[in-house]
């Protein structure tokens, strides 16, 4: 009995270094950042004078002037980026997975091609797509515009990520960025769906076929519903990535004219490390954290709870 007790303690002690590190580096630092976000720290030298919610207030109300405008644009951009990025990844990923599940010859090759962008850095992706979508001038088109010109499709040329046009609050300059991000992450949803499809026993489909169900009926009524948990997982994982996206956009376009491609991650980085507005940067990062937590915590809880029940 006391032996078992001792071993429980050893088990705990083995974990302890990791626990301490994470307690400091995750929870301690978050608390610290929260404190900075409530302070007057504006400049190179720390200043922990308590100012309450002033920094948050400046991000959301007129008192913040252009900061509030910028942050509002950032939130809209994040929303649209997230929606279209998720839609793109899930739909294309699902289509690819279903196609690949048709006993394809050379499946390995296709799978490798769809998935390889996952192995790349967002920085690499950003640099390449920046070059592809660079608009050039009407007289000297670059990138996709040059390709369109080659095929005589000049009327389809536009300014891509440098465009300041918008449809309502949606900046069209985000489209190239969304394409780049989806290019990188679609392979992930495809792999997840493929794993899910492979996990569905063949007998299930056979049984349905015996009952005279058509292939499309089998997919719509049997297989897709079974993939729903995978969709949820994919949405959470990709969703939290898109809420905190930074490297890709920072490398590919930066904040863009009129903040057309700005996101909170870039705002935080610039205001903190270029403008030395530390308190404001901390406030932005806390908002980012809250957004991510709102998505991730329920998922973590349900995921682990489900595990216990099993």
């Amino acid at each position: 009995m006391s032996q078992a007790r001792k071993e429980r303690w050893i088990a705990f002690l083995t974990l302890l270094p990791s626990i301490i590190l994470l307690a400091i580096f995750v929870y301690g630092f978050i608390g610290w950042t929260l404190r900075v976000s409530l302070s007057a720290w504006d400049g190179i030298t720390p200043d922990y004078t308590w100012v309450g919610l002033t920094n948050f207030n400046h991000l959301f109300t007129k008192a913040g002037g252009v900061s509030a405008v910028r942050f509002r644009i950032d939130l809209w951009n994040t929303l649209f980026f997230t929606i279209f990025f998720l839609l793109g990844c899930v739909m294309v990923g699902l289509i690819l997975a279903i196609l690949l599940d048709q006993k394809i010859r050379g499946e390995g090759v296709f799978r490798t091609i769809y998935l390889f962008p996952m192995a790349l850095s967002f920085v690499v992706t950003g640099v390449v797509w920046q070059w592809i979508f660079a608009p050039g001038t009407p007289s000297r088109p670059r990138g996709i515009n040059a390709l369109l010109g080659l095929f005589g499709l000049e009327q389809l040329q536009w300014r891509w990520y440098t465009s300041t046009e918008s449809i309502g609050p949606f900046h069209v300059a985000l489209i190239p960025v969304i394409i780049a991000a989806a290019w990188q992450m679609t392979g992930y949803t495809m792999a997840m769906y493929l794993a899910g499809l492979r996990g569905i026993p063949e007998e299930l489909r056979e049984a349905a076929r015996v009952d005279g169900a058509s292939e499309s009926y089998i997919y719509r009524r049997i297989i897709l519903p079974m993939l729903r948990p995978i969709t949820l997982s994919a949405l959470i994982v990709l969703g939290h990535i898109s809420l905190k996206i930074f490297d890709l956009i920072y490398t590919m376009t930066g904040k863009g004219p009129g903040f057309v491609t700005d996101v909170p991650g870039i705002f935080m980085f610039e205001t903190t490390f270029q403008g030395n507005h530390y308190a404001q940067g901390a406030a932005i990062s806390i908002i980012m954290l809250v957004m991510v937590a709102a998505v991730v915590i329920p998922y973590l809880v349900s995921s682990l709870r489900g595990e216990v029940e099993r």
Binding site: R8, I19, T272, A282, S285, I286, L300
Partner: peptide
Amino acid sequence: FRGADILFALMLFGMFIPYQSILIPL
């Protein structure tokens, strides 16, 4: 051990946070 699952969940959260939110103290 007791509470290991809670501990695990708390650890896992660390991989989802936006790293901006720990960057200044870090």
